[in-house]
């Protein structure tokens, strides 16, 4: 059996009624593939993995894989994940979100999860648009782009998801693309292994709702765009600013050791026990 077939048999749900909901050429499948390869390399038990998502095209991702899967409400995936992780810190909790999911409706939860530093992994698929609802502008839709709620052009300015996560205090932040699929699974693997809150922003393509309306071509052209505009973090550090104007960086943006919430909370429990014992 080919390697990929083995992985499909091992990780995809056999009792789930395929086909999936995604358009042909969608980046979500590539992210799912990268996630499965990363988890397979780590050798984690399926029982020990909880895959949590919000709402949108990305929200449907967990249903296809044979882990403990939790499809929550729009923007709230990180709050549910926080509860899961605190109730059972041994579980590997991985959260999948979209750009609107994580930075619009879930923006507050996102920055606070980063600040709090629980040992969670957040993978944010950024396709610059609300795809499932039909192409409305999101917080990462570029200035001047077209969307069904910005038919005259978008006059809002986009978030950089990864940089937002760095500023909010995440322990590890990386950015990848669905074009660089092999790099992506290494970034995800590193993020899952990271002790603390880790974020992987995945630059993806929604040719159906974003590319078509903005005349960026189909899936192939949009993947080509990713290839042409992605610069490795290490290389970008040596490049002059003018050359980076229309580029974005890929790789690990930040990787720092910070106190982990669940480890800190163990100390709180000890202090509380000592206080209660003293009161008796």
């Amino acid at each position: 059996m080919a390697e990929v077939t083995k992985l499909i048999h091992k990780y995809l749900r056999h009792d789930k009624k395929f086909p999936h909901v995604w358009c042909p050429g969608c980046g979500n499948g590539i992210v799912l593939g990268a996630l499965i390869r990363a988890i397979d390399r780590l050798g984690y038990e399926k029982d020990d993995i909880v895959l949590v998502s919000g709402i949108g095209c990305s929200g449907r991702l967990p249903v296809y894989v044979d882990f403990n899967t939790l499809h929550t409400t729009h923007g709230r995936a990180l709050t549910f994940a926080t509860g899961v992780k605190l109730a059972n810190p041994k579980l590997h909790v991985i959260v999948i979100m979209g750009d609107g999911d994580a930075t619009a409706i879930g923006g507050n939860h996102f920055i606070h999860a980063a600040r709090r530093n629980l040992n969670l992994t957040a993978i944010i698929i950024n396709n610059n648009i609300y795809g499932m609802t039909g192409g409305q502008y999101s917080p990462t839709t570029p200035y001047g782009a077209l969307a069904t709620t910005a038919v005259y052009r978008n006059i809002e300015h986009a978030f950089s998801i990864a940089e937002l996560a760095v500023t909010a205090g995440a322990a590890m932040v990386a950015r990848g693309t669905v074009y660089h699929a092999n790099m992506l699974d290494k970034l995800i693997e590193k993020a899952i292994l990271k002790r603390g809150f880790s974020v992987v922003e995945v630059v993806s393509n929604c040719h159906t709702q974003y590319g078509r309306r903005n005349k960026l071509g189909g899936a192939v052209q949009m993947l080509q765009w990713q290839k042409d505009h992605a610069v490795r973090v290490e290389k970008a550090a040596e490049m002059p600013e003018e050359e980076l104007a229309d580029k974005f960086t890929v790789g690990v943006l930040v990787d720092r050791d910070l106190p982990i919430y669940t480890e800190e909370y163990k100390k709180i429990r000890e202090a509380a026990r000592a206080k209660m014992a003293a009161m008796r």
Binding site: V50, R76, T79, F80, V84, L91, N108
Partner: peptide
């Protein structure tokens, strides 16, 4: 938590984890 939306989400997550 950061608000009551998050509080409700967290208690559901914790319950699912036992």
């Amino acid at each position: 938590m950061e608000d009551e939306i998050a509080s409700m989400g967290a208690i559901i997550g914790a319950s699912l984890a036992g």
